[in-house]
Deep mutational scan, measured.
Amino acid sequence: MEVRTIKVFTTVDNINLHTQVVDMSMTYGQQFGPTYLDGADVTKIKPHNSHEGKTFYVLPNDDTLRVEAFEYYHTTDPSFLGRYMSALNHTKKWKYPQVNGLTSIKWADNNCYLATALLTLQQIELKFNPPALQDAYYRARAGEAANFCALILAYCNKTVGELGDVRETMSYLFQHANLDSCKRVLNVVCKTCGQQQTTLKGVEAVMYMGTLSYEQFKKGVQIPCTCGKQATKYLVQQESPFVMMSAPPAQYELKHGTFTCASEYTGNYQCGHYKHITSKETLYCIDGALLTKSSEYKGPITDVFYKENSYTTTIK
């Protein structure tokens, strides 16, 4: 009895394709271990004539594949690729409408935090270190965002349907971005203890939790000093293409032309909904596939993004 075979390709990165001759009487799992086709788990399936010449994702289970996976995804987590594939199996079914010149995501599976993050990423200057993220990001900007969303979920250790947080998501993504040249110098002034300067680099240099107003941050924000008295913390120097200011959701007025974009969060910790506000020729609110415009805006804002380049204080 002759062994019926077909020729397929296996890959971990969709760049390096490895030619395989597979036995049609055995499952993919018996031949390769966990195997995925377009995100779908085909591990328990036997090869079919229609699979001839198709590319299958496999887990990096030998040295060659491990090197290829690390170079593309910059992670050695053995569960990463499987999590990416199972997320992709959902995100490829989502709709990605162009809204006001940006790629958004039609609401499904509690994905409003991903839509808000995706919209924000198209408006701030950011370059990702893992080629996987950078490639998928370019495709997302062009309207094909399924891979990018699935990668975000995998890097953030999230599953489809789980509630997510924009600030946490951005923080994970910033860790995989090139923020080497970003720098922030802060000064804390206390009447009792004097003053202390701190220099922050990388992710810490672009994120701040405690106030939404970048102007206020430049002037000074009140913080408790270690001595128990009130101290003032203010920005001395900022070198970065953008800054992200966050605070627990509270009524906040966004003035046209003073910011790049913002995240609105309605609801409580267990259950809520994100919308995205962007400042173009007027203010726009993007909620999944829905767009509304207004000249002014007041609502429960939790993150505001500002364009920056270089700032030095005039406070002496």
Rank of each mutant, 00 (worst) to 15 (best):
C271K: 00
C149I: 10
T198F: 14
E68D: 07
T10S: 07
T266K: 00
R66I: 12
P131D: 00
Q31R: 10
P97C: 11
T11A: 07
Y284C: 15
Y36H: 06
N309V: 11
Y96A: 01
C193V: 07
Q175E: 08
S279H: 02
G161I: 01
H176N: 08
F148M: 13
Y138F: 12
D287M: 12
Q196D: 08
R184K: 00
V236Q: 07
L118C: 06
T302N: 03
L153W: 10
L37D: 14
T43E: 10
K218E: 03
V185H: 02
G161N: 06
A231H: 05
L17T: 15
F305C: 00
P78A: 13
T260S: 05
H74S: 01
I152Y: 06
L212C: 11
N16T: 08
A205S: 05
V189R: 09
K233Y: 07
C261Q: 03
I223L: 08
K233R: 14
E239H: 10
N309A: 14
L291V: 15
E68C: 05
F259H: 06
Y113W: 15
V236E: 07
V185C: 04
P249A: 03
Y36W: 15
T313D: 14
C149T: 08
F32M: 13
E296C: 11
L102H: 14
L114H: 07
N178W: 03
R167I: 03
H18W: 08
Q31T: 13
K92P: 04
N187K: 15
V22M: 10
G82M: 15
P224N: 14
K229H: 10
E125K: 07
N100C: 15
G228Y: 04
Q195E: 13
D287E: 04
P248R: 09
N178Y: 02
H256S: 09
Y297V: 10
G29L: 06
Y138W: 14
A136Q: 10
Y252K: 04
L163E: 08
Q123K: 01
M85G: 04
C156M: 10
T292I: 06
V22W: 04
R83M: 07
D109P: 09
C271S: 08
D165T: 09
C271P: 07
K298F: 13
H74E: 09
N268A: 15
V12I: 15
L235P: 03
D23C: 12
L290Q: 14
